[in-house]
Design a protein around this nucleic acid. Structure first.
Lengths: 317, 317
DNA sequence: CCGGAAGCATAATGCTCAGTTATTGAAAGC
DNA sequence: GCTTTCAATAACTGAGCATTATGCTTCCGG
């Protein structure tokens, strides 16, 4: 027993044997596989040397499969079909006929950006499953890093130190989508309510309503910039609640305009821009290289098409 | 949708993905597969470029499978097991644990060489199936060329024009096994029966018993060589019948000694060598390159060990 | 019986690909 | 903070695989 059977079958040999079994000759197999005839001839030779047994028997002008060749040909169907199944599934994924994208976004987006995104995805890529979880930017970023989600939609205020857009985080990549103004919600019977723009500095004595730490942080920073310290008496994340409180004359608040898209300004409250004006930026964040995943790329593509103007916002150019 | 999914999965990628799925890191997978770490890293990179989608997601210090990688890993088991099955069957064949050899041999061999061969094969290579069909040399050669059999055991007389041993037939390869003398069967009360050797020339007037065309051809050639023409009155292939006829005093015959190994010389007949003496050679014939088929090689090996002396014959050296 | 066509093998050549070692840069644990 | 581990990159090397060109055998038809 001289030959040590170590080097195993390779796909190419299997395909070649299969083709020979089907076409009867090496030349025909070569044509069918898109190779020149010597290529197949040589490869067979090498394979046979590796295996220690002939795969084909030269028979006159043509060849026929040896017993070993017949064994390979018999298995070839199973192997190639298993492989084709894998290729098919993979092609579905690549061709966006299948796949999963998990998205995290901040609460306000849940009723604005996200429904629109999910609708577009359903329409354009019905095979792709989109998962969604609501999370404030810091948690969304954490989930992204953990791999719990594939894509995060976050916001950030200028100068925000926890801005996920910051370059320090090399493993993440962020794309700005648009910016939206931060506006002042004020009771309409307030003395300053008839102005077009209200200066923050004039609001030093007001009672403030503020929500999440991030938003409150922005309020503090904006006020500090004009040398005042806001008096925060009421705390809630809920935009509707904030507006209702404002309408009741219980205070003023800064709200991102996006929040107004689904929370109608109630009787007794009105909205004004501020001086200095401030914007917050909406962005999507993915892991570095995720754009190469087709389903994620498709999601990003659709997100980039989402226009902030749909909610009366300015698109970032 | 830019990426054209054409270049398909290769075995290596599948193995790599499988190994990564099992071991968790690229380095561990590389160790398990016996490669260096950059080899796997690079191969993954190439595969991903080919497929148009990442297979793994770099996650901190390690990696984890992407969705596409999970798809591949899921199929990997089926594919590799199908491949292992094929390899296993092939290994059996190569390792002589399986296989089929079809043998053709002339009638006299059926009761001498062939039973011994079959017994040896059964003993030494129980997994190999040996098929047998009886055929005179010309038909045996034809079957060999047609692929109906893998190995032919034939005989030939010196100078025989249909000798399959002749070099003209380049697609066949023959191995001489041994030679056996052709002897004269003569009634023991015949006038020449008391001689040790009988000259063919002295038998010009005898009635001859002859069998198959090949044997008869030899008889004619041998007689012609000494200037006589045999008078063939009785024809039969059957050695026992020939001997019985000789014992009955109905004629003389030339018989290969192998025929006597299983046909006892009856009362009334005896056996003498002739002048000039003649031998016939026993040989095995296979298709060129068949020796590379393990099961055929094993058969040849055993056949070469068969000693003509087992039947009182001289071994060819 | 004898060209011609078809098929396989061989030779010579070129190039791509896949492996190696060496090195760097991050990330995780003590 | 330092060390260890892992992955990526760079540069090099060699083997494998393809190509074209050519010769030999076999089969078929005039």
């Amino acid at each position: 027993m001289l030959p040590v059977m170590d080097a195993n079958l390779d796909l190419h040999s299997i395909r070649i044997v299969r083709a020979i079994a089907e076409h009867g000759t090496i030349s025909a197999a070569a044509r069918a596989l898109g190779y020149s005839q010597p290529a197949i001839s040589q490869h067979l030779r090498r394979s046979e040397a590796r295996l220690g047994t002939p795969l084909v028997i030269r028979s006159g002008r043509g060849v026929r499969l040896s017993e070993a060749g017949q064994v390979v040909a018999r298995h070839a169907v199973a192997i190639t079909s298993a492989l084709d199944a894998a290729s098919g599934d993979l092609a579905e994924l690549v061709g966006l006929a299948a796949g999963t994208v998990r998205v995290a976004a901040f609460p306000t987006a849940s009723s604005t950006l996200v429904p629109r995104l999910l609708g577009s995805m359903r329409q354009r890529h019905p095979g792709i499953t989109v998962g969604y979880v609501e999370a404030e930017p810091p948690e969304a970023i954490a989930m992204l890093r953990d791999g719990a989600v594939d894509l995060a939609i976050t916001f950030a205020y200028p100068g925000d130190r926890s801005d996920p857009h910051r370059p320090a985080d090399v493993s993440l990549e962020s794309v700005p989508l648009f910016t939206e103004p931060v506006v002042l919600a004020i009771p309409d019977r307030h003395a300053l309510a008839d102005r077009h723009q209200v200066a923050l500095a004039d609001l030093a004595e007001e009672r403030w309503i503020a929500g999440c730490p991030l938003c409150r942080g922005h309020l503090l920073a904006a006020c500090e910039a004009v040398g005042v310290t806001p008096n925060i008496e009421l705390e809630t994340d809920n935009a509707i609640a904030v507006l209702t409180l404002v309408a009741a004359g219980l205070g003023v608040a800064l709200l991102p305009q996006l929040a107004l898209a689904t929370a109608p300004v109630p009787q007794g409250a009105t909205v004004r821009s501020t001086t200095p004006s401030s914007d917050r930026s909406i962005q999507l964040v993915v892991q570095n290289g995720s754009r190469r995943v087709p389903s994620i790329a498709a999601t990003i593509e659709l997100l980039e098409q989402v226009d902030g103007a749909d909610w009366g916002l300015a698109r970032v150019t």
